[in-house]
C-alpha cells in the first residue's frame, strides 16, 4: 500500500467507534485497525498493570506483552464480547504471573507496602490531594487496588470487572466496599499524622 492510500484509509479506521469492527478489520488484514485499538487502550492497560504491580518497568512490559498476545490470538477473540474486557483480562493474567514469580523468588509473601500510612503522609506534606489519594490506593492490597483502579479510575462496570478478574460480581462489590473502607482509614491516618 502506498503512502497516499495509507493516509486516505487512516481517518476511516479512526472513525470506527465499534471495537468489534476494528478487531474484524485487523483480522481481515488491516493492521492499522489494531493500531487504533492500541491507541484506545494502551494507557488504560498500562495503568491497570502499574496499579497491580506498582512497578513502572514491569507495567510497561506487561502492557506490551498483553497487546502482543492479543494481536497473535485475534482469531480466538469471541464475537460479541468486549475488546476492553479481553485485553484487560490478558493484562491482568500477565500481572498475576509476575506476582506469582515474585512470590516464588522471594522468601516472603507478596511485598505489600510495609508502612501504609507513610505514603499518604508524605504526600500530604506536599499538600497534593490527588497524590495523597494515589499513594493511599497504592498502599491497598493487590485485589483491592485492582478493583478500585478498574471501577473508579477506568469507569468499568461490575460485570466487566468480574469477567476480567474471573471472580463473581458479588465479590467485586465486596472488594470495592472493603477497599473504600481501608482507603478511608489510610487517609484518616495520614491526616491525623500530619495534624499531630
Amino acid at each position: 500500500m502506498n503512502v497516499a492510500a495509507a493516509l486516505l484509509e487512516a481517518p476511516l479506521i479512526q472513525s470506527i467507534d465499534d471495537d468489534q469492527a476494528l478487531v474484524s478489520a485487523a483480522m481481515g488484514g488491516r493492521p492499522d485497525a489494531f493500531g487504533t485499538l492500541v491507541e484506545r487502550y494502551d494507557r488504560a492497560v498500562y495503568h491497570l498493570a502499574y496499579r497491580t504491580l506498582r512497578d513502572q518497568e514491569e507495567a510497561r512490559d506487561v502492557a506490551q506483552e498483553a497487546f502482543f498476545k492479543a494481536y497473535r490470538s485475534l482469531r480466538t477473540f469471541r464475537p460479541g464480547s468486549k475488546f476492553s474486557t479481553w485485553i484487560f483480562a490478558i493484562a491482568y493474567h500477565a500481572c498475576c504471573d509476575r506476582l506469582a514469580r515474585r512470590k516464588r523468588y522471594s522468601n516472603d509473601e507478596l511485598p505489600e507496602r510495609a508502612d501504609p500510612g507513610a505514603g499518604p503522609e508524605q504526600q500530604a506534606i506536599a499538600g497534593d490531594e490527588a497524590r495523597r489519594l494515589r499513594a493511599a490506593i497504592e498502599a491497598l492490597p493487590e485485589k483491592y487496588r485492582t478493583v478500585i483502579t478498574l471501577y473508579h479510575l477506568q469507569g468499568r462496570q461490575y460485570d466487566e470487572i468480574a469477567e476480567v478478574l474471573g471472580i463473581p460480581m458479588g465479590t467485586v462489590k465486596t472488594h470495592l466496599f472493603r477497599a473504600k473502607e481501608q482507603l478511608r482509614r489510610l487517609l484518616a491516618q495520614g491526616a491525623a499524622g500530619v495534624e499531630q
Binding site: 490470538s73 480466538t76 469471541r78 464480547s81 474486557t85 479481553w86 483480562a89 490478558i90 491482568y92 493474567h93 498475576c96 468480574a162 469477567e163 476480567v164 478478574l165 474471573g166 471472580i167
Partner: peptide, 8 residues
C-alpha cells in the same frame, strides 16, 4: 483457547 476469565 479458554476465555481469559475462565482461565482465571
Amino acid at each position: 483457547t479458554l476465555a481469559p476469565g475462565a482461565q482465571q
